[in-house]
């Protein structure tokens, strides 16, 4: 690989890795704060609490793992470890989707502190949507598996 291609690969890895980190790790972790600022002072604490309840606490961490794997995937594309990286990335994305959709049923308890002393609970069933979002990670997993198998079948280079 030439130096120019390597540089381009590094740049792409950084860009996509950063985008993944931004959307999959940072935004979930900061969503509560954003909502709090948007809600104003009256219901700020309660709205932040609701948003935090909608986002699994593990989601930013899994998102960070996904971002790291995206970075590695772009950086090590075509290498022998690319297939395993895609497999791990597929698993990580599956986990991410599962956590994001809270296993298919998003449960929300309305906290104390809202106007009119509102309280209660809401359950949102999103199983189908979750399964739809799992298709791409599954195919990524399959792709990683295929590439791993393909790489393992190739004869080693002659020294």
């Amino acid at each position: 690989m030439s130096g120019g291609k390597l540089a381009l690969r590094v740049v792409l890895a950084v860009v996509f890795g950063s985008l993944a980190a931004l959307f999959l790790a940072y935004l979930p972790s900061a969503a509560g704060s954003f909502a709090k600022q948007a809600a104003g002072t009256a219901n700020a604490a309660a709205v932040e609490s609701i948003v935090n309840a909608l986002i699994n606490p593990s989601l930013p961490a899994v998102g960070a793992v996904v971002a790291a794997l995206v970075f590695l995937g772009f950086l090590l594309r075509g290498t022998k470890v690319y297939g395993p990286i895609l497999m791990v990335l597929g698993l990580a994305l599956l986990a991410y989707v599962y956590l994001a959709f809270q296993g298919g049923t998003i449960g929300l308890t309305i906290p104390q502190g809202l106007q009119y002393a509102a309280s209660g609970s809401v359950s949102i069933g999103v199983s189908t949507l979750m399964l739809l979002f799992m298709v791409a990670p599954l195919l990524t997993l399959v792709k990683g598996l295929v590439l791993t198998v393909m790489k393992s079948g190739e004869s080693p280079p002659v020294a």
């Binding site: 009119y116 002393a117 509102a118 209660g120 809401v122 359950s123 949102i124 069933g125």
Partner: peptide, 26 residues
């Protein structure tokens, strides 16, 4: 203070099914 209680069910099949109960003070 009056207590307002509500139950809600709504579906957007096959993707979303919402059910909930809410109470508030009026």
């Amino acid at each position: 203070n009056l207590t307002v209680s509500a139950t809600l069910d709504a579906n957007e099949p096959p993707f979303i099914a919402v059910s909930g109960s809410v109470s508030a003070q009026l």
